[in-house]
């Protein structure tokens, strides 16, 4: 079932520009994929429109993630990616909104698709992007007391803090002193 991307692109351009005007920044096709870049303050309205408009019907939110463009020297630093699919029309597209480092806030699309719940939590966990009005914005993969956001480009692969296991014969706290000392590994902070 081949989808006519050019036609979809024209339709998007017409309908979206009518509603949102200049806030739709760019609609492109590359590698057989339709990508639409929008301003971040209209993301919820755009998604709502994409879901409900009979000619788009993007009823399945496939994926939400972000890209940290800082190592490429690009501004704004983060791009938030929404990958959409329409079960009715069998077409895909990608919506992209940029978030700057000073203002890491973007509205949540949880009200449009409930899938966004965990996907946005993961994006927050990995990039530190804050999804406003998200019902439960906590870390999901990393421990709750983790410092930093691992998928940012300035986060080193080996982590910020290093631990190593030190051999020790010291008895543990609360352990009787008269036991035969045993060599055991203890977690130490460098």
């Amino acid at each position: 079932m081949a989808v006519d991307l050019e036609k979809l692109k024209e339709e998007l351009r017409n309908k979206m520009s009518e509603f949102f005007g200049e806030k739709i920044k760019d609609i492109t096709i590359s590698h057989d994929e339709l990508v639409m870049e929008v301003e971040k303050d209209i993301i919820v309205e755009v998604c709502m429109k994409l879901r409900d408009d009979p000619s788009f019907q993007f009823d399945l939110l496939s994926y939400v993630t972000a890209v940290d463009y800082s190592a490429l020297g690009r501004e704004p630093r983060y791009g938030v990616i929404y990958q959409l699919y329409s079960v009715q029309k069998t077409h895909r597209m990608r919506v992209k909104a940029y978030v700057t480092e000073d203002d890491l806030i973007i509205d949540t699309v949880y009200s449009v698709w409930k899938t966004a719940d965990w996907l946005e939590r993961e994006t927050y966990d990995m990039f530190g992007i804050i999804f406003r009005n998200h019902p439960d914005l906590r870390r999901i993969l990393m421990p709750e007391d983790w410092e930093g956001h691992p998928l940012r480009k300035d986060f080193p692969l080996g982590g910020v803090k290093s631990f190593y296991f030190k051999r020790s014969t010291e008895p543990r706290a609360g352990e009787p002193k008269n036991l035969v000392p045993r060599i055991r590994e203890q977690l130490s902070d460098i």
């Binding site: 890209v67 490429l72 990958q83 699919y85």
Partner: peptide
């Protein structure tokens, strides 16, 4: 340099890889 999303049907559902190359 490219940004692509490739989805296949894995045994558990839609398995997608979103790749950004520089």
């Amino acid at each position: 340099p490219a940004e692509v999303y490739q989805a296949i049907e894995g045994p558990k559902g839609e398995l997608g890889f979103f790749l950004v190359s520089d």
